[in-house]
């Protein structure tokens, strides 16, 4: 199985037709590091996550996962990446357990039933395990989607607005989960507009503005204050 301890983006650009979504973005992250990717709507955050997830290729520049790159490592590398996107990547017609079971098998995990039970427990959905996802609230789907993204214990965790739709209890649970991922040595990239919630959980924050990456300086003040100063 492929593993890696660093993620390195070097001069990554991405164009969609004539529109430049990312312009020469460089970013390095190490195992056990949690990085917040901030920025206004349309700044290119989701594009950057999609590139890191190997879903889209950069127009120029290089993305390396330790010694590997997406083109040569292929499926083995994808098996070490977990993505929670805007869309939740769940089949509404399947139950919570069936969704997790399907993806556990897709990832060729051992002990499928045990993993499914544990994931449902963490998502607080054990009593709703056989209910179709179509009947779940946004928050319940979000919790299930997070467990789906982390089911295969990925090294690189990419979370796009993970706090969307969560109530206070679920938000606290997710904060604990993020802290656990850091302790487990995951590389976590998280985009959010919920700066107060993420403050204190991250090692550093960077901001995308019109496709360009800006580092948010450490220092006095809350994450929101520092973010506003950087804008």
């Amino acid at each position: 199985m492929i593993d890696f301890s660093t993620l390195t983006l070097t001069d990554v650009s991405r164009n969609f037709g004539r529109r430049r979504a990312l312009a020469r973005v460089s970013l390095a992250a190490a195992a056990g590091e949690t990085i917040a990717l901030l920025g206004p709507n349309g700044a290119g955050k989701s594009t950057l996550l999609s590139i890191a997830a190997t879903l889209i290729a950069p127009s120029s520049g290089e993305v390396r996962y330790g010694d590997h790159d997406a083109r040569t490592a292929g499926g083995a590398l994808r098996g070490r990446i977990g993505l929670l996107g805007h869309d939740l990547y769940l089949y509404p017609e399947l139950s919570a357990a069936e969704n997790l079971r399907f993806f556990a098998k897709v990832y060729r995990l051992d002990g499928v039933e045990r993993r499914v039970d544990e994931a449902l427990d963490r998502a607080g959905l054990t009593t709703r395990r056989d209910d179709q996802v179509a009947g779940f609230s946004r928050g319940m789907r979000q919790r299930l989607a997070l467990e789906r993204a982390l089911l295969h214990a990925p090294r690189l965790v990419l979370l796009d607005e993970p706090f969307t739709g969560l109530d206070d209890a679920a938000t606290h649970a997710l904060r604990r989960r993020l802290a656990g991922l850091r302790e487990a040595g995951c590389i976590v990239l998280v985009t959010t507009h919920d700066l107060e919630t993420i403050d204190g959980l991250i090692d550093r924050a960077v901001m995308l503005q019109q496709g360009k990456l800006v580092t948010i300086a450490d220092g006095a003040g809350s994450l929101r204050e520092r973010y506003r100063r950087s804008l």
Partner: peptide
């Protein structure tokens, strides 16, 4: 509809 194709494309399956 739920972008599940992206989830499948991201998985290690052939």
């Amino acid at each position: 509809q739920s972008e599940t194709l992206r989830a499948l494309m991201m998985s290690p399956i052939d």
